[in-house]
Simulated scan of single mutants.
Amino acid sequence: MYNNITSSTKEGITTITINRPSKLNALNRETIQELHQAFKSADEDKNTKVIIITGTGEKAFVAGADISEFADFSVEEGGSLAAKGQELLFDFVANLSTPVIAAVNGFALGGGLELAMAAHFRVASENAKMGLPEVSLGVIPGYGGTQRLPQLVGKGRAMEMIMTAGMVDAKQALQYGLVNHVVSLEELIVFTEKLASKIMRNSSVAIAGAIKAVNAAYDESVDGFKVEIAQFGNCFGTEDFKEGTTAFLEKRPPNFPGK
């Protein structure tokens, strides 16, 4: 079905793996399109409660964009490349109603770090290295990197990372708040699946509402507090709310229908 990625679902977790090891899993246009389709399918699949995005092998999550595809682009083509990529993949993932965890194995550079930052949070292997090296090529991050990196690590650190085109290791990334956890490469997927299992115990409907409300805080065109109030109110009309509150009062674990 896919040329550049794999997607498999097991026990409520869909794992999407970028599978271009000879190119260190670099993102070309075809891979971005396939990732869009895989995320869309997983989000629409009622059996999928959490999505994990990772890369094949031990070296790289995604080592960046495929530079050979756009080295001769014009101004208009460059702008279109960024706009289409953000719409198809990076903004799409950030606003997905299904939780997305990035399991960062090895290098996450340029578009790779931008993809990891679009996920709802990140777990890194000890050998992970992250950075936005675009200015060393005479261009800037174009898939949301200049916006999401400051949100996660603060303006000063983001400016330094972008201007120096340097990399941070997993320990620094943890200290910066760029990743939530650092584990050994061997533990990475198992640890991420355990986090996914904790998420799956809760109401998928409520989680979708929480994602919308949290994302609204970073959208200057909307009032995040109003979005929170609306999403909070919506919860009261769900079967999950009825089940959650009933289970609490009956002192038993909830069995959420996801409606």
Rank of each mutant, 00 (worst) to 15 (best):
N202K: 10
K155I: 08
G111Y: 06
P133D: 11
L185D: 09
G106R: 11
K198D: 14
V168Y: 10
R201Y: 00
F191Y: 15
A170Q: 13
M200K: 15
V205G: 09
S125R: 01
K212N: 15
A196G: 02
R201F: 09
G177T: 08
R148M: 13
P141L: 08
G209V: 00
N180C: 15
A208E: 09
L96R: 12
V205D: 05
F121L: 10
I211S: 02
G166E: 14
E193L: 06
K155Y: 06
G112H: 05
I199G: 07
M130W: 07
E187F: 03
A210Y: 14
G138V: 02
N215G: 06
N180Y: 11
V123K: 06
M163D: 15
V214S: 07
R148V: 09
D169V: 01
S97G: 10
Q151I: 11
I207F: 05
G154D: 09
E187R: 07
P150S: 11
A124W: 00
R157P: 00
I101P: 04
S125K: 02
G112S: 04
V168H: 06
E193Y: 00
V104M: 12
Q151G: 01
A108V: 06
L185G: 15
A213D: 08
R148N: 10
H120E: 10
P133K: 12
A119H: 02
R122E: 11
A165V: 09
S204I: 08
V139A: 10
G131T: 02
M130S: 05
A210G: 05
S204N: 05
A216Q: 12
L96H: 08
L152M: 08
A213N: 03
M117D: 03
G106N: 12
L188V: 04
V182F: 01
V135K: 15
M161S: 04
M167A: 15
P141F: 10
E186T: 11
Y218M: 01
M159W: 00
K155S: 07
G111D: 09
V104T: 03
L195A: 13
L115R: 01
I140A: 15
I189G: 03
A206T: 08
Y176V: 07
T146W: 03
V205W: 12
S203A: 07
A158L: 07
A128H: 00
V179I: 14
F121W: 15
A206S: 09
L137M: 13
A216F: 12
N215R: 15
K129V: 07
S97M: 04
N202E: 13
V183E: 04
T98Q: 03
N105R: 15
I207M: 11
K198M: 13
V168R: 08
L152W: 01
H120K: 06
D169M: 07
K171Y: 02
A124D: 00
L132K: 05
A210H: 01
R201T: 10
A124K: 00
V104P: 03
F121T: 10
G145N: 10
Q172D: 14
V182C: 05
I199E: 08
I101H: 04
G111P: 09
Y218C: 01
L149S: 07
S125L: 05
Q172M: 13
G112T: 04
A217M: 14
A213C: 09
L174Y: 12
A170I: 13
S136C: 08
S97C: 04
P99H: 04
T146R: 14
G209W: 01
I140R: 12
V153N: 05
I199Y: 07
E186C: 00
V139M: 10
H120G: 01
K129A: 06
A108L: 08
M161P: 00
